[in-house]
Simulated assay, not measured.
Amino acid sequence: MFTQIGFGAEEAARLSQSTVQMAADLGSFNNVPTADVADRISAAFRGEYDSLQSLIPNINAARVEQEAMAAT
């Protein structure tokens, strides 16, 4: 996914590793398998936050947009 949106191979690999680590950490906090959390994160990258809300209740499109605007 990261290479498809324009990241170079090395940065895409780093981001992928970070995402998997984040999925493992989030899964361990909520007693959910890493693969399940990774699928939920992948859906969130596509703008589908519903499945991730059970793990992070305050995530929604408006909050993501607000954070993105603050970062730019």
Rank of each mutant, 00 (worst) to 15 (best):
T72D: 05
A38W: 05
D36R: 15
Q21N: 15
T19R: 15
A13T: 11
D36M: 14
R40P: 00
F29N: 12
E11H: 06
M1W: 10
N30V: 13
G6Y: 00
D25W: 13
A13S: 07
A71E: 07
Y49A: 01
L52P: 00
E10K: 15
I5S: 03
Q17D: 10
A13P: 01
A35F: 03
N30Y: 12
S42V: 04
A35C: 05
S16C: 14
E48R: 10
G8F: 00
T3R: 07
M1A: 13
R14C: 05
S28N: 14
R46V: 02
P33M: 05
E65P: 04
D39Y: 07
P33A: 10
G8E: 03
Q17Y: 11
A61R: 13
P33E: 06
V37I: 04
N30G: 11
L15V: 11
S16P: 12
N60I: 00
N31Y: 09
S18E: 12
I5G: 01
A23S: 12
I59T: 00
Q17N: 14
E65F: 08
A44D: 00
N58T: 08
L15M: 12
R14N: 08
R14Q: 08
T3D: 02
D25G: 13
D25L: 14
F2L: 06
Q66S: 08
F2P: 02
Y49L: 01
S42A: 03
Q17T: 15
A43Q: 04
S51E: 04
Q17C: 10
E65R: 13
E10R: 15
V64E: 01
S54G: 03
G47K: 09
F29R: 14
V20Q: 11
I56M: 02
E10F: 11
S54W: 03
A70C: 04
